[in-house]
């Protein structure tokens, strides 16, 4: 079967910035594929190359077996694209914008009418369809944006950070809609830096960092590959470094404990990597009690996608986000996005 999206050794630089260094991904028809990574990792650039908005420096991109570079017009028929920022014409009503969008995809009049009604129903826009989009809240805008993107029932829908800055209700509405799409057989490529979003939605996930794919697979597989469970232990609300160090040395000697690190960013709490066994938590608690050390809070969990990211890059996603904030020139990025090419 032809892959829905095939990316091979994609490379794209903007001036001195290597946005994408080497990305290869295969996205199968009908799956939700999540592209996870911190801001500035190259997610949006990858997507822009898939959506014919940017020209790769090198590498090959195919959508439904059609090469993006040589047949962009055919690729566009198969694609729907939902940008991170919702761009609407605030003077037009939702229905008018949907009519415009239908014409851009050459839907015949009666079919366009039928699709618009179906989309209004599906995304519960009845109340808003005939209001100017300038009056919409962020959530309504996003719902209209989804309606616009799916009007022509593309085989592949690409969404860039679809829930950034949205309220909880809209976020779950977006998720529900994406699940309906998957049930309809639509392939979905979604970028996000929300772990939870990718974990709930995606069949498979690609983790991208500094322009490279560092891990790809089913979320459960990726997490299982790490092995072991995580125990987070806080001695006090704010533990002193000395006390944390004492506990660390003590716990590191337990046979079920593989590794212990002190997380200074979270009040010197201890992060333990332990064998996956039921008594691990009890053993840790007993050890602490025997040594007369206090416990403020303790919890055990399976590895998360963040741990996958941590294992591959040596830092958590949040740390990477924070580190990236100071390095990015958002103004320049916006200019590049406008220029395309």
């Amino acid at each position: 079967m032809v892959a829905a999206i095939q990316i091979k050794h994609l490379k794209k630089t903007y001036g001195p910035v290597q946005a994408v260094q080497d990305v290869s991904l295969t996205i199968e028809p009908g799956e939700i594929f999540g592209l996870l990574g911190p801001n500035g990792a190259g997610k949006t650039t990858t997507i822009r190359c898939v959506c014919t908005l940017a020209t790769p420096d090198s590498g090959r991109v195919e959508v439904m077996g059609i090469p993006v570079l040589t047949q962009p017009q055919r690729v566009r028929q198969h694609l729907g694209y939902i940008a991170q920022e919702v761009a609407l014409d605030k003077v037009l009503t939702g229905r008018e914008l949907m009519r415009l969008q239908a014409a851009l995809y050459h839907l015949p009049g009666p079919l366009a009418q039928q699709r618009i009604e179906a989309m209004i129903q599906l995304l519960e826009l009845e109340e808003w369809a005939d209001q100017k989009t300038g009056t919409y809240s962020g959530g309504i805008k996003k719902r209209l944006d989804l309606a616009l993107g799916m009007l022509h029932q593309p085989d592949v829908l690409v969404l860039d950070e679809p829930t950034v800055g949205l309220d909880i209700e809209t976020r779950s509405a977006v998720w529900a809609f994406l699940r309906q799409l998957r049930a309809a057989g639509t392939t979905i490529l979604i970028t996000s830096h929300y772990l939870e979003e990718i974990d709930t939605l995606a069949n498979r996930v690609g983790i991208i960092d500094q322009g490279r794919v560092i891990a790809a697979g089913r979320p459960a597989e990726l997490k299982d590959q790490l092995g072991g469970d995580r125990i987070t232990l806080r001695l006090q609300e704010f533990t002193t470094p000395a006390e944390a160090e004492t506990a660390r040395l003590l716990l590191a000697h337990l046979p079920c404990v593989q590794d212990v690190i002190i997380n200074a960013a979270q009040g010197n709490s201890l992060n333990l990597l332990v064998d996956r066994q039921a008594e691990a938590l009890t053993l840790v608690q007993q050890t602490m009690a025997t040594a007369g050390l206090p416990i403020f809070g303790i919890s055990q969990s399976r590895p998360s996608l963040d741990d996958v990211y941590l294992a591959a890059t040596g830092r958590t996603l949040i740390d990477a986000e924070l580190a990236a904030v100071g390095q990015r020139d958002l103004k320049r990025e916006k200019k590049q996005a406008m220029k395309g090419g």
């Binding site: 599906l122 029932q153 799409l181 309809a184 057989g185």
Partner: peptide, 27 residues
């Protein structure tokens, strides 16, 4: 402002609404 959203369609009902025969034959 809080608006109560009506319950969305189930996945299969939503999929059926999306994948109408008319849009398929057009494609």
């Amino acid at each position: 402002m809080s608006t109560t959203l009506p319950t969305p369609l189930s996945n299969s009902a939503g999929a059926a609404a999306l994948n109408s025969a008319a849009i398929q034959s057009w494609k």
